[in-house]
Design a protein around this nucleic acid. Sequence first.
DNA 1: TTGTAGGCGTTATCAG
DNA 2: CTGATAACGCCTACAA
Lengths: 346, 346
Amino acid sequence: MKRKLTLKLIAKELDVSISTVSKALRDSAEISEDTRQKIKAFAKLYNYKPNNIALSLKNRKTRTIGIIIPQIVHHFFTTVIRGVEQMAREHNYNVIICLSNNDFEKEVMNMELLANGSTDGFILSLAKETMQKNDFHHLTEAIDQGMPVVQFDRVVDGIPSDKVLVDDREGAKMGVTHLLKTGCRKIAIITTEDYVTVGKLRTKGYIEALESYDIRVDKDLILKLDNIDSCDDQCIAKIKHFLKGKDIDGVFTINELFAVEASKALHTNGKSIPADVSIVCFSDGDLSKYATPSLTTVSQHGEQMGRRAAELLINKLEGPEVEVEEYTTSYINTSLIERESTRKVK
Amino acid sequence: MKRKLTLKLIAKELDVSISTVSKALRDSAEISEDTRQKIKAFAKLYNYKPNNIALSLKNRKTRTIGIIIPQIVHHFFTTVIRGVEQMAREHNYNVIICLSNNDFEKEVMNMELLANGSTDGFILSLAKETMQKNDFHHLTEAIDQGMPVVQFDRVVDGIPSDKVLVDDREGAKMGVTHLLKTGCRKIAIITTEDYVTVGKLRTKGYIEALESYDIRVDKDLILKLDNIDSCDDQCIAKIKHFLKGKDIDGVFTINELFAVEASKALHTNGKSIPADVSIVCFSDGDLSKYATPSLTTVSQHGEQMGRRAAELLINKLEGPEVEVEEYTTSYINTSLIERESTRKVK
DNA sequence: TTGTAGGCGTTATCAG
DNA sequence: CTGATAACGCCTACAA
């Protein structure tokens, strides 16, 4: 097994000094055309590539961005990663991804691991457990050490960091307004308990939409579930029970899964979609596209979030050192994708 | 902005030498209990963590595994990553993920980037373009430099590397056999052209299953499409046309998307599933679970693949240097998940 | 028990 | 034009 080629080896081979080789390869004018060519030819022939680790140590920069997310099987995070990846590539950064599995300890471990030289900065979405524990010392520690942090999606206030968020309230409002425009007047919502920020904001958007049409908010048409990323049997049962015999003509749900299950339940109840009941959901994946009927969604543009987050981070990394840092919060717009589960707007 | 704490800083602060600090922190018996305690207390207080980059440079090991995959929005790869992540964590390795976007140049770039010190070894699934180009110099170069490689899913022969594969032939055979067991006798398959290995092998499994039931393979019941990871309008049209008026009682497809579209088309044709026609597909995601009706699938266990791939790589990394390397090919079993799209086996 | 020196691979500075 | 030296942060053999 061959050892990797280094400046030292080249130097020895060509009988020059290490610094001559280094300079030649970086096209320094200090080196004579002759030796430069000779060295470059040799390096090329044997496929010399500088060692990144050594460069990182020297430059105290890794050109690597760390992403820490709760889970990767969630389609939303997947798209965000892709966005970060793109932007990072465009700026010659690497991306290193760590999963917290929604576990506080793991999130802390991951951050400490990456903070020890592997990474120049972080993009992260907090683990559920972290939110509950309300313990963010790992964030502040990283930031204290001079590592910029960009939070996205699941964020906390009070941390000196940029943030990238989906405009949940506005998105929900748009979705419900679409239902209203197509003629729905008795619209139910399937959301989460208020301690989940996302659910709370989307519920708020739902209420605002109704109010703008002067429709009274009916508590009986609001179902708040504990889950957010999944929909187990118990959760399905609640949805079924909730929809059973309700006099409604529209349903808005805060994720795809709830919508799919609602769609099934309504179908079982003999309702036709969208003739009897229309459905709109917040979405981050393909499920709504391939469901039967396919679902009209408020789409989240995770890729754009990722790009924006990476952009913010890179700006901080490459920007000049400033006395007083400023932090921005970006809202990524949602957009409505009309499919089969809603009627046409007249 | 505080600078990160280093051995040097601690040494200066406590007025001892750097090596004393280093030794104390590593609990060397050389250092007196006294100074050891003092140094450790200080380090703990100020939260000293050794710099990974420096360690990597020193040890010529990064304890980082590179994964290179065509795309991340594909659910299958997502699960594989999770598996790799798990195993890596258990062995104290980092994981760094790069996307090739099925682009040859990008795959080469990524590998070169990571091969220059960022990574101790690779786990990769080849880009489609790489397969077509039949150019694997980036693999052999990395391997020549002493970086072990584990290929998975989309692999080539002739490269000195371990491989982890889904047993496509066996999986397809199992799926089709299930259809046969439930009483289906006229089974169509929607697959890919033979140049896609995965499609070819699954087609083979289909044929074997039929033959084991002494059923003649009917070319008219085989649809070969160009796509594999997607299903565009043209592709949907072909599926519709293929199924139109065919006298069949079962459909096997090599991915979820084809199955969902087939299901829709059959439904449109007035067929009832599974009463008239049963459906089984190879799958890697949730689509089949949430489809209406939900689809019986041959499940791929991506996570297990990831774990196995990581295990193989770590074995190579930590195993003793041997004169003659041996390479293994692991097959990950598939399993049948029965859902609504097939009848019960009598 | 503590400290010094050298090296991992690279680059920048300065001397020849 | 070329080379020696120091430094990035850490570890370790060896010297004191």
